[in-house]
């Protein structure tokens, strides 16, 4: 852990920035750019009316988070993030959108009636998280001392990031690695079973039932 002189609180951090310039080669500048991209595209994901636009915003958000991982010296994780999220999950979401709903020119109500309540609840949740993270049990602000930054170091002098993660996955965390593979197999089988098409007769019956269900639920909502 670093000594007291090495703890950059926010004020000394900005003073250092002011003295050393805001060059694009400095990592802090990329942090602010990436933060702006991540937060803006996250808000876009939440409030976009067109679901395809929301999926594209989610892809942009994941790319920004991969940049944050590169800032944190986790290059392998950044590659995994781009491959799995942008290449896998967002593609899967786009397929699900195209399978489930007609997108173009649809002006549907995309938020339910709880928007104001949801906004209040989420902001209160954020305040609670900040308080938990930065204040001790007596109510004092302890964040900067509790998270004293470590000293200057080259984090991984002889071993690359991917090699380190691979060796750890194969030695210390082998059991969790196996369990993750089992979980992926179970999820794949479960997704296949859930998304499997029923027989034609079953689909016809479900259509009748769903019509009646929708009518009854609509009546309840109108009351």
């Amino acid at each position: 852990m670093g000594t007291g002189a090495e703890q950059p609180d926010v004020w000394t951090y900005f003073k250092w920035l002011w003295l050393n310039g805001f060059g694009l080669a400095q990592p802090h500048w990329w942090f602010f750019i990436l933060s702006f991209v991540i937060i803006a595209s996250g808000i876009g994901t939440v409030i976009a009316r067109n679901l395809l636009h929301a999926a594209m915003f989610l892809a942009l958000c994941c790319i920004g988070i991969a940049g944050i991982f590169i800032l944190l010296n986790a290059e392998f994780l950044a590659a995994v993030q781009v491959l799995v999220y942008v290449g896998g999950i967002v593609t899967l979401i786009i397929f699900a959108i195209m399978l489930s709903e007609s997108i173009t020119g649809k002006k549907a109500v995309t938020h339910n009636k709880q928007s104001i309540t949801a906004l209040g609840v989420s902001i209160m949740m954020g305040i609670v998280m900040i308080v938990i993270l930065f204040y001790n049990q007596d109510g004092y602000f302890v964040g900067l001392e509790r998270w004293a930054l470590t000293a200057d170091r080259n984090p991984f002098p002889n071993v690359s990031n991917a090699q380190m993660i691979g060796r750890s996955l194969m030695s210390t965390y082998t059991l969790i690695f196996w369990i993750a593979s089992i979980i992926l197999t179970i999820a794949m089988i479960g997704a296949l079973i859930l998304a499997k098409a029923e027989d034609e007769t079953d689909i016809a019956e479900l259509d009748k039932n769903s019509d009646s269900v929708e009518e009854s639920s609509g009546l309840e909502v109108n009351e």
Binding site: P8, V10, T12, P27, T150
Partner: peptide, 10 residues
């Protein structure tokens, strides 16, 4: 670490 890296609370 150098002060160029953003602090962790950021």
């Amino acid at each position: 670490m150098s002060p160029a890296d953003p602090p962790i609370h950021f």
